[in-house]
């Protein structure tokens, strides 16, 4: 196990990013998880805490993926994948579901991102390319209505292009909405001053993160020196 870890690239795996984000979700939170890496957060609920998962297609108290053969086409999540309902779950229609979101009843939403700007602007629904089919789903409602927005994303694109930047070039999902960012390299808090380093992944240097971020990375708590 430890050998395997040592041969891996620097920084956190997708599962470790999800595990790190889960640590910051308070006990008793109502949580909405976006599609992709955010879905993994449900596997890493810290011991002694209980989260209630909301899926915007009408279920509060979403449980894990069913066993093979136990899937129900009428019981799915926002990604249209089969899920289960926990004991104590509730079903409701779409307007009630989005009242939970838009009425600020959901505590935390964890989303993926194409770009996050240093002022908390998020772009995660469209590259604005002329031949793309625009599709927004519930992303704009979530960022406008949920109290705390966490983003989990690789620090850069597959081609090494920065995703954490001074200003988004893609069409926005929402303005100034992101609170925290969990990447493979670090945890960043979005503040009124910009990106502030909260934690570095093991064996990741501050300079590496700054190099891969197209905005000033602040370190008021001297995290770089402590790690």
């Amino acid at each position: 196990m430890s050998l395997e870890k040592n041969t891996q690239a620097v920084g956190w795996t997708r599962d470790q990013m999800a595990e790190r984000a889960a640590l910051d979700i308070p006990d008793g939170s109502y949580v909405n998880l976006g599609i992709g890496i955010p879905e993994k957060v449900a596997r890493y609920v810290p011991q002694g805490r209980e989260f209630i998962y909301h899926t915007e297609n009408g279920l509060l108290g979403m449980g894990p993926t069913p066993e093979v053969g136990e899937e129900d086409a009428d019981l799915i999540n926002a990604g249209k994948k089969p899920v289960t309902a926990i004991a104590g779950a509730a079903y409701f229609h779409h307007a009630d579901s989005f009242a939970m979101i838009r009425g600020q009843h959901i505590d935390v939403c964890v989303l993926g991102a194409m770009q996050v700007a240093q002022n908390g602007d998020l772009a995660n629904w469209s590259t604005g390319a002329p031949d793309a089919i625009p599709a927004v789903g519930g992303a704009m409602d979530l960022v406008a209505g949920v109290k705390t927005i966490f983003v989990i994303t690789q620090h850069t694109t597959k081609n090494g292009i920065a995703k954490l930047i001074e200003a988004c070039s893609y069409p926005l999902t929402g303005q100034g909405v992101v609170s925290r960012i969990y990447t493979d390299l670090c945890v960043i808090e979005v503040t009124s001053k910009g990106f502030e380093l909260v934690e570095l992944a093991p064996n990741v240097a501050f300079d590496t993160v700054q190099e891969r971020t197209d905005a000033k990375l602040l370190d008021p708590n001297n995290i770089a020196e402590q790690s």
Binding site: E56, A95, S97, M140
Partner: peptide, 11 residues
């Protein structure tokens, strides 16, 4: 194209 919650609330 309408955000999902806006679509639900418009209906």
């Amino acid at each position: 194209l309408v955000p999902q919650g806006t679509l639900a609330e418009r209906i």
